[in-house]
Write a protein that binds this DNA or RNA. Structure first.
Lengths: 228, 228
DNA sequence: TAGATTGTTAATCGATTAACAATC
DNA sequence: TAGATTGTTAATCGATTAACAATC
């Protein structure tokens, strides 16, 4: 199937575009997934949108609207089967696939993330780590080799890498992002404090820890004298 | 000034409430702050909302609306003074104050964050680290002592701690959050994959890395065959 | 079948964008 | 002063909530 086929007619494309799921909805899916995992572990079989809404402190309407973006997972008079919904949301999120990743930057944060992901996250597999410090080349973190930055591009192509994780300072991050784009990477998980100037074909998910901490400090400061 | 005074009359309270800034706006402030820092470093003195909007890829309207939630920082016919705006947004975000923090959990992530914050973030000061592993007690990470979990409460009270950072597994996180609430902490920066059941007086900022990665994997998956 | 609960349409709410009078 | 650009009001857009007919 070539690009023209996948595109379909103009009419179809418009319909498809109008159906595109908002990032607000996508942003809530992992949380649903997390609660369903919890319920599943507790051995509970079914749940209504009303019960789930109480648990998650959102409206039942929102839950039903969100889920119905992807199809009717529930059954009138019954509610939702937890196991089934859990699996389906997992599929929607793409958790039924494997992703090959590389870590760029073997500093504190980079090493922590590699360790953490190898413990916790099946499906997201680190294949290589890159750093600019020659004294690290050839060393391993959890069986993953540390290599020179110069080899990123060829490594991506050879090992079919889907996601690059950026845990380096911002100046370096912008430079490396350019190289990543050239090598045809599909997605970047960006921990650098900078917006990467990339074309829209490359998915970027930012984790700006500074920004997060600033939000917290705002909320502390402004709530000092305020009553709810 | 006691609580009743700070509250003011009912009328004032209503007015104040209606003026409350939405989290959508707050969430954008750190990004403004980041861009202004950049412009300042480049030695640029003034910028119009139009120029800034081009740079940041948002509308000029949004910039003006956002800023005017906090007062008129600009000047007609001139635009905004970068240095001044930078400082003002910093104040709004509470970056002109110092915060005392503790890290809970001395695993990979906890250690990485302590290291990172001591390099990068003036104003956010770690005073103590807590872990459940007795073999770590008394050890130091960048001059900050690791102590037993049992001492959290007394430490918070003695050292006037504002923010606790949770970098521990979710079950432990829920338990510790309860203890933190009792000790009167004001804010929690939560890296555990769980929603903490806390009263609204305690500010919680979640950094759910798993959720972030799932959003990325969704966007990879759903964009496979789609054209923009 | 009757009761429960969904899927979906309609109403509301809030956030974003546009427009323009005020003013530097 | 004239031109530029803000601060702010009004219009639009999108997201959330409510309501209810469909249906298990």
């Amino acid at each position: 199937m070539d690009k023209a086929d996948r595109r379909g007619t103009v009419k179809e494309e418009i319909r498809e575009t109008s159906r595109e799921i908002s990032q607000a909805v996508i942003g809530r899916l992992p949380r649903y997934h997390r609660y369903l995992a919890e319920l599943k572990e507790q051995g509970i079989e079914r749940i209504s949108s009303q019960e789930l809404s109480t648990l998650m402190k959102v409206t039942a309407s929102q839950i039903r609207q969100d889920l119905n973006n992807f199809g009717g997972f529930g059954q009138q008079g019954y509610g939702y089967n937890i196991e089934h919904l859990y699996v389906e949301i997992g599929k929607i999120l793409g958790l039924d696939k494997e992703y090959h990743m590389i870590m760029i930057g073997a500093g504190n944060l980079g090493r922590a993330l590699v360790n953490y992901m190898n413990y916790e996250k099946r499906g997201f597999l680190f294949k290589g780590i890159f750093d600019q410090d020659p004294s690290l080349y050839g060393k391993m973190i959890r069986d993953i080799p540390i290599m020179p930055m110069e080899e990123i591009k060829s490594f991506i192509l050879e090992h079919d890498i889907d996601i690059a994780v950026l845990a380096i300072p911002k100046t370096a991050a912008v430079r490396v992002a350019g190289q990543l784009a050239e090598s045809g990477i599909r997605a970047i998980w960006n921990f650098a404090h900078v917006d990467l100037p990339l074309s829209e074909e490359i998915q970027v998910e930012n984790v700006h820890l500074s920004d997060s901490l600033m939000k917290l400090s705002y909320n502390i400061s402004c709530n000092l004298g305020r009553m709810k």
